[in-house]
């Protein structure tokens, strides 16, 4: 059983937000519109956070692209009263939009603020949307799914072509788009996969590691240093 994970190299990341927009296009994430945006209700499964370090009194800035970290021990799933968010066997933390009652407990519980709520009906089905991903109604929570539908498609394809499914065929939209090749995706359980190799790099670290959420999105620090 694969264990899907992602490595993001902060040394390469230029904060360009290609991943953000790629995600929006791939996953039918609506633009919430001017009014709602100003009310801080933008939905952005992938969000580029900007860290200004204080010592250099804001001189240094660092971009941290933040998808759902797909925690291996996710605090968000435990608190869901209806199993509308859960960790699947391959480690992907999923949402069931049709079941979510919109209590937003998972949002309150996620230490990384990776979950977003549909405060209104932001969009209807329409042209330009990706038919592989459902359009969310008002009142439910959504978040990065590691582009799970792409995994399903890749598997289906392999099946149709009567060959083994090759993990390299499963690439999320953000990783595919990243113009600095800062996002590497793959099977962490396979020691020779690139993502597993990078995850062992001396530059590797996890966000809020001390919380013990065991994120499967791993970051590489900026600057010199091996790896």
């Amino acid at each position: 059983m694969a264990l899907w994970g992602m490595v993001i190299d902060l040394d390469r990341c230029t904060g360009c937000q290609a991943c953000v927009m790629a995600c929006k296009a791939e996953n039918n994430i609506p633009a919430v519109g001017e009014k709602e945006a100003k009310r801080e209700r933008i939905i952005s499964w992938m969000q580029v956070l900007t860290e200004t370090d204080e010592e250099h009194h804001g001189e240094k800035m660092r971009f941290i692209p933040r998808p759902c970290l797909q925690c291996d021990d996710p605090p968000c799933t435990k608190v869901c009263p209806v199993y509308a968010t859960y960790r699947n066997p391959e480690g992907i933390v999923a949402q069931i939009y049709a079941r979510c009652i919109g209590c937003r407990f998972c949002m309150a519980a996620c230490p990384y603020n990776a979950k977003y709520f549909n405060w209104h009906t932001y969009q209807k089905e329409g042209p330009g949307q990706n038919p592989d991903v459902s359009v969310r109604p008002k009142g439910v929570v959504e978040k990065c799914t590691f582009c799970h539908h792409r995994l399903q498609k890749a598997r289906a394809r392999a099946l149709a072509e009567k060959r083994d499914f090759d993990p390299r065929e499963y690439v999320p939209a953000c990783a595919e788009a990243c113009l600095a090749q800062a996002i590497v995706f793959g099977d962490l359980s396979d020691p020779v996969s690139e993502v597993a190799k990078l995850a062992r790099s001396p530059r590797a670290f996890k966000l809020q590691e001390e919380l013990g959420t065991k994120p499967k999105v791993i970051y590489l620090t900026e600057g010199e240093g091996g790896g």
């Binding site: 937000q17 290609a18 927009m21 330009g128 595919e176 788009a177 113009l179």
Partner: peptide, 28 residues
């Protein structure tokens, strides 16, 4: 129904920037 980078294209090798995806909204 979607835009992605042409992996064969020597300029971008499949990568894109944020503006490319918004092309969907420009079209519609």
């Amino acid at each position: 129904a979607g835009i992605s980078g042409n992996p064969l294209h020597p300029v971008n090798g499949g990568a894109l920037c944020p503006k490319a995806f918004a092309g969907l909204q420009l079209l519609y």
